[in-house]
Nucleic acid binder design. Structure first.
Lengths: 211, 211
DNA sequence: GCAGGAATGTTAGAAGCATTCACATTGTCG
DNA sequence: CGACAATGTGAATGCTTCTAACATTCCTGC
């Protein structure tokens, strides 16, 4: 009944908000992505410890067992969120990488983009680094973007060539990662100074790389 | 009945292992600490996602509601674990700080101690940085140890005095924290090189501080 | 020493969550 | 059009956290 079946994907006309969405057809149409989005909402609102798969289902307007048609487990949904996070991060890094022609400044921009990503999308950032260890394939792509920038900077001799590019990239990643984590945790605890985290990243990276 | 009541604390004669401990008296005697220890065991074995307060209680050999006499909630037990972590970290940092007289080398030792702490006690480390934001009071003490070392190194002019000591300490903390996190997550993924994380820390900090 | 309250532990149970299974509805393809 | 795959539902299981009423033990003031 109800001739509303806009062919699979897209026939979902619930509200974006947090009220239990109303559906017009038996099938949702785009449940998988809706679940990921709903999960992100809840993660952003209540944090990981309060996260509940049942609540995601309720919010999306579907029975609590429906998610299992798309994800084997609650953790797999969170993994999908993390994967989306790696994609967004990858885009942020690539945008930063192409923002400037100077190889040294490029590294600073990328560091800033990393911490800004963490602050703009804490739900994604926390999810990415909470689950099981290991980068997804897209995580490796993100690292490659950084690695290329380091290689290029070494080629231009704007940073020392002393440790290998991989080691140096790892140091850079670790540094900005630490900055991102701590900036999320202790907003400005103890340091009244509210230097934007990206500035702090640029300063720290400058020192680290001898720029 | 049963004249075994070695006066409160200490009358607990369960095994250290993971089998449900047997108790001889009604009262446990040192339940609070036993719960923290049990929690650490489970965290080390199964990780945070599998952590269950009920299981801690079972393992310690006590009913599932007994923990609530000592902790208002499951999270409060985890907070106690985190607090213990900050104490251990503090000791590690102080030991490293007094290991050498050279102000510059001291900073490297402390960085190494930080990542070694994370690797030796991942249960504590993860718990400390998983819960609600903010350092406990003991966390601040740990930071103060680092801050003092930076101040001293600046006084000896072995590191630049350019950014304030607080900012520099924050950079150092962030850097070693990032190294610790990533070393726990990607053991040696992608880098066949298995440079001990402490060496990586020393190298990275040397570059950061211009040592 | 002993009464009685403060600590501490127990049992039973409410409410919520993850997961599964049998079943219902719908899209799709021959 | 008719079967089959995909997708969603309802009910049930066994876990979890947490509360409430009750039991035992410690300890303190008399």
């Amino acid at each position: 009944m109800m001739p509303a079946r806009t062919r699979g994907s897209g026939c979902y006309r619930g509200r974006m908000g947090s009220t239990p969405a109303t559906r017009t057809s038996y099938h949702h149409g785009a449940l998988r992505q809706a679940l990921v989005d709903g999960a992100r909402e809840i993660l952003a609102e209540r944090g990981h410890d309060q996260f509940s798969l049942n609540e995601v289902a309720r919010r999306v307007g579907v029975s609590t067992s429906a998610p299992y048609r798309h994800f084997r487990s609650r953790d797999e949904l969170l993994a999908a969120v993390a994967e989306q996070g790696y994609e967004v991060l990858h885009q942020c890094l690539e945008r930063a990488a192409t923002a400037t022609a100077d190889a040294g400044e490029r590294l600073l921009c990328m560091g800033g983009a990393y911490v800004r990503f963490a602050q703009d999308h804490p739900d994604l950032f926390v999810t990415m680094f909470r689950g099981q260890p290991g980068l997804g394939p897209v995580g490796h792509e993100s690292f490659d973007v950084l690695l290329s920038a380091v290689v290029e900077a070494q080629r231009c001799a704007v940073i020392p060539t002393a440790p290998s590019a991989e080691l140096m990239a790892r140091s850079v990643w670790a540094t900005v990662h630490g900055l991102a984590v701590l900036s999320l945790r202790q907003p400005h605890e103890r340091f009244g100074l509210d230097e934007p985290a990206e500035d702090l990243a640029a300063r720290t990276l400058s020192a680290l790389l001898g720029l």
